Each structure stands twice: as structure tokens, then as C-alpha cells.
Simulated scan of single mutants.
Amino acid sequence: MVEKDPAINVLGGTLEVCGMSPVTGYFRDGHCNTCAEDRGSHTVCAVMTAEFLAFSKYVGNDLSTPRPEFGFKGLEPGDCWCLCAARFLQAHDEGCAPKVHLEATHQRALDIVNIAILKENAA
């Protein structure tokens, strides 16, 4: 059985829900929970924008195209999604980072992204 890391956000509080429509998270529980097996660190709760979705598709992770065989309708601007922390940082460095829900972003994101960058992009 996979053991989840404690559900604590980047502000030190209880990790809040990121998104239920579509259901997000490494564990598909709506939260940006993580564990040792989550190699991508799906810990940043981000609000999708058209600009970010185009960037993500360009760099090889198409989040906007529906994949019905996986029960995935595709993301649209305004949807909340648990992003890999490194992808968020890459988007930030390229000037197209989405907004972040700090209360729903797991503290493990801080292993990769500085809190100042997260706060700068706070929703």
C-alpha cells in the first residue's frame, strides 16, 4: 500500500481540495497529495490558462486534448489541476505560469519551487 505524505500545504495548513471536475491529483482524489512513488511531484494546484495549456502541449504534455480511453475530458482554461512542480517552474521561467492556489498546493512543491515564486503567482 502506498503511503501518502502528510496533507500539509505550502502555508503550513491543511491541504485543501484542488479540483473535483475533472478530478485531479496523483491519487485522483481531488487533492495535490503526493508520496515517494510520485516521481513527477504533482503538487502545485494551478488554475489552467489558454497560454499555459498551449505551452504544456508544446513541451510534450498535452493536457487539453480529450482522451476518452482514460476517462479524461481534457482541461480548459479555468480548470484546476495538480501540476508537476518542475513543469510549473519551467512555465514560470518561460513567462507563462498559471495562477496557484497556495492552500491546495502541497508542501513538497517547496522541494522544487521557491515559496516566493508560488506567492508571486498566487490566485
Results as ranks from 00 to 15, higher is better:
Leu63Trp: 10
Leu63Gln: 07
Ser64Tyr: 11
Ser64Trp: 08
Thr65Cys: 05
Thr65Met: 05
Pro66Ser: 02
Pro66Tyr: 06
Pro66Gln: 02
Pro66Val: 04
Arg67Cys: 06
Arg67Lys: 15
Arg67Trp: 09
Arg67Phe: 11
Pro68Ser: 01
Pro68His: 04
Glu69Trp: 13
Glu69Asn: 13
Glu69Tyr: 12
Glu69Ser: 13
Glu69Phe: 12
Phe70Ile: 06
Gly71Glu: 12
Gly71Arg: 14
Gly71Trp: 14
Gly71Ala: 10
Phe72Tyr: 15
Lys73Ser: 14
Lys73Gln: 14
Lys73Tyr: 06
Lys73Glu: 12
Lys73Met: 12
Lys73His: 09
Gly74Pro: 13
Leu75Glu: 08
Leu75Ile: 07
Leu75Thr: 09
Glu76Cys: 10
Glu76Trp: 06
Glu76Thr: 13
Pro77Gln: 03
Pro77Ser: 02
Pro77His: 03
Pro77Ile: 02
Gly78Asp: 09
Gly78Tyr: 10
Asp79Lys: 03
Asp79Leu: 02
Asp79Ser: 04
Asp79Gln: 04
Asp79Pro: 07
Cys80Arg: 15
Cys80Ala: 09
Trp81Phe: 14
Trp81Val: 03
Trp81Ser: 00
Cys82Leu: 01
Cys82Gly: 03
Leu83Met: 14
Leu83Arg: 00
Leu83Ile: 00
Leu83Gln: 03
Cys84Leu: 01
Cys84Ile: 01
Cys84Asp: 04
Ala85Gly: 05
Ala85Glu: 02
Ala85Tyr: 04
Ala85Phe: 05
Ala86Pro: 05
Ala86Phe: 12
Ala86Tyr: 11
Arg87Trp: 11
Arg87His: 13
Arg87Tyr: 11
Arg87Gly: 03
Phe88Ile: 05
Phe88Thr: 04
Phe88Glu: 04
Leu89Tyr: 11
Leu89Phe: 09
Leu89Pro: 12
Leu89Arg: 08
Leu89Asn: 05
Gln90Asp: 15
Ala91Phe: 10
Ala91Leu: 06
Ala91Glu: 10
Ala91His: 10
Glu94Arg: 14
Glu94His: 14
Glu94Ser: 12
Glu94Cys: 11
Cys96Met: 11
Cys96Ser: 06
Cys96Phe: 06
Cys96Glu: 09
Ala97Ile: 01
Ala97Asp: 06
Ala97Tyr: 06
Pro98Asn: 01
Pro98Gln: 01
Pro98Phe: 03
Lys99Gly: 08
Lys99Ala: 08
Lys99Cys: 07
Val100Gly: 03
Val100Arg: 00
Val100His: 01
Val100Glu: 01
Val100Leu: 01
Val100Gln: 01
Val100Pro: 08
His101Asp: 11
His101Asn: 07
His101Val: 09
His101Leu: 14
His101Lys: 15
Leu102Val: 08
Leu102Trp: 07
Leu102Asp: 10
Leu102Arg: 06
